[in-house]
């Protein structure tokens, strides 16, 4: 087994291979970031650990498949599928937050945890009722099934595009959060919601809005992942763990924290599987543990103050 690692080490001196792995790491990181950023947003504002985020991701992939299939795979149908995933997940999140979740804000974390876990099971079963247990294939969007030639190597266009989309989402979220009035309100809600309410802000509306946007991002993440993986029950199995690792590394509620966390996880996964093939499963956890020992509040998080 050790020989495999040594063989891979010799590969690391191959520049083309390094380039591939570098790009693989970034595209995996960016796909994860789009999903995890929704989770961290919800966690930061609502203080709810939303276990259902992974199930929303899967649901988004299914919605995308249905849209593409309904439109007969026409040009642009994939992008409509991404929009549809955002809209459907946003609507679902609206109903869940307004109808159920809001009654649990004052409760202890365990109740909320159980609630979101129940949502995982319900969403999973609803998906099974609608789409059955079959696996589905979403083709690459038109013109993106090939590769871009960099001269010294080719890299597939679709994952390249994911890198760009991840960056756009990051910058867009940052602008929205730092430059707009609603962004400031959301940031204020992460700091001190009582004060925000005392200032006459409609805090419940902020909560609904954040839950809807966060869940829509999970849906978008699922739709964007769909062309690269089989859409099927169980595709949400590992994503929620990966998202939690990212959120913990980055610091709860931090946008750039989850951006860096996602990239770190991308690099650790891609290079870890090559250099330490036997340790593939635990590398991400080692990364998380090491960081927790060093900075328990994550890269960009803040030390929790005692509630006053």
């Amino acid at each position: 087994m050790l020989a495999i690692g040594v063989e891979a080490m010799s590969m690391l001196s191959n520049p083309t291979f390094l380039f591939y792995q570098f790009m693989n790491s970034i595209s995996l990181g960016m796909n994860l970031f789009i999903i995890a950023t929704g989770l961290t947003l919800i966690l930061g504002v609502l203080r709810v650990i939303n276990f259902a985020h992974g199930a929303f991701f899967m649901f988004g992939a299914y919605v995308c498949w249905s849209t593409v299939t309904f439109l007969g795979g026409a040009v642009g149908s994939f992008w409509l599928g991404v929009v549809a995933a955002a809209v459907v997940l946003g609507a679902m999140a609206f109903v869940i937050e307004r109808g159920l979740l809001r009654y649990l804000y004052g409760r202890e974390h365990l109740t909320q945890l159980l609630f979101t876990f129940a949502i995982v099971l319900i969403v999973g079963d609803v998906a099974k009722m609608i789409w059955g247990t079959d696996q589905y294939n979403v083709p690459y969007p038109h013109g993106l099934g090939g590769a871009v030639d960099f001269g010294f190597a080719k890299y597939p266009s679709y994952p390249l595009l994911l890198c760009v989309i991840g960056l756009v989402v990051a910058v867009g979220m940052w602008l929205a959060l730092s430059k707009t009035r609603w962004g400031r309100i959301i940031r204020a809600a992460t700091q001190d919601r009582e004060m925000l309410a005392a200032l006459g802000m409609n805090v419940p509306l902020v909560y609904t809005g954040v839950f809807v946007i966060g869940s829509a991002l999970a849906g978008i993440g699922g739709a964007l992942a769909a062309p690269r993986v089989a859409v099927s029950p169980g595709m949400d199995a590992t994503i929620i763990i990966e998202c939690f690792i990212i959120v913990i590394i980055g610091g709860l509620g931090s946008l750039w924290g989850s951006f860096l966390g996602a990239l770190a996880l991308g690099f650790v996964t891609m290079f870890g599987t090559v250099i330490f093939p036997d340790w593939e499963l635990v590398l991400a956890y080692i990364l998380m543990l090491g960081l927790l020992l060093w900075r328990p509040w994550g890269l960009f998080g803040h030390e929790e103050e005692e509630p006053h």
Binding site: E7, Y20, L28, M235, T238, V274
Partner: peptide, 23 residues
């Protein structure tokens, strides 16, 4: 010349694909 063992349930095979291409 090369043995690769991705885990059961793996969804991202890019690291393995590039290793095979490099081998």
């Amino acid at each position: 010349v090369m043995k690769l063992r991705p885990k059961l349930g793996a969804t991202d095979f890019n690291a393995y694909i590039t290793q095979i291409m490099g081998a």
